[in-house]
Simulated scan of single mutants.
Amino acid sequence: MIRQKGTRKGDLLQFNIPRKESITENNLIIPPSMGGALPINFQVIGNNNAVTIGDFVLLANEVILHGEIMTVIGQ
């Protein structure tokens, strides 16, 4: 469940979920508006179906776990 308010644009529902911790590069904080958040979009395609797409902002120690989870889901 997404516990974030989305924005509706036609048949598209958009979420931009900030991470709890700050994302930094070379000791500079990257704000959510510059790619430090998780954008997720849902679009209705009919018959109670939807297409979704999103990007993940991961810390180095999360990359392997994320890859393993996505591999299991894709099987």
Rank of each mutant, 00 (worst) to 15 (best):
P39H: 01
T7Q: 15
L65Y: 03
Q4M: 03
G74I: 00
L28C: 07
A50D: 03
S22P: 03
L65W: 05
I29M: 07
G36K: 12
I23T: 01
L28T: 09
L28H: 10
I2H: 02
V51E: 14
I53N: 15
I73N: 12
V72Y: 15
G74N: 07
I2F: 11
N49K: 13
R19L: 12
P32V: 05
R8A: 08
I2T: 06
P32Y: 13
Q14K: 11
V72E: 15
E25L: 11
I64Q: 15
R8Q: 15
V57L: 08
N27M: 03
K5G: 09
I29W: 02
R8N: 10
A60L: 09
F42K: 07
Q75L: 08
Q4S: 08
A37G: 01
L59C: 06
N16W: 02
T7L: 10
I64V: 07
F56E: 04
N49E: 07
V72D: 11
A60C: 02
F42L: 11
I23W: 00
L65I: 03
Q43C: 00
D55V: 03
Q43F: 03
L38N: 10
T24W: 00
S33A: 13
F15C: 05
T52K: 06
K20L: 12
M70N: 11
P31H: 04
M1R: 10
N41E: 15
N47M: 01
I23C: 00
I30A: 01
I45K: 07
A50R: 13
V44I: 09
N61C: 04
L59N: 11
L65K: 12
P39K: 02
N61E: 13
Q43M: 05
N41S: 15
E21M: 14
D55E: 15
T71R: 04
T71E: 06
E62Q: 14
G46K: 11
G35M: 12
V72A: 12
N26V: 12
E21V: 15
L65M: 08
L65C: 06
Q43Y: 00
I2E: 04
P32C: 08
G36Q: 07
V63L: 02
V51Q: 13
L58F: 11
D11A: 09
G67I: 03
N41F: 08
K5F: 11
I2R: 11
N47F: 00
N49R: 10
I64D: 13
I23N: 00
L38V: 05
I30V: 11
I45W: 05
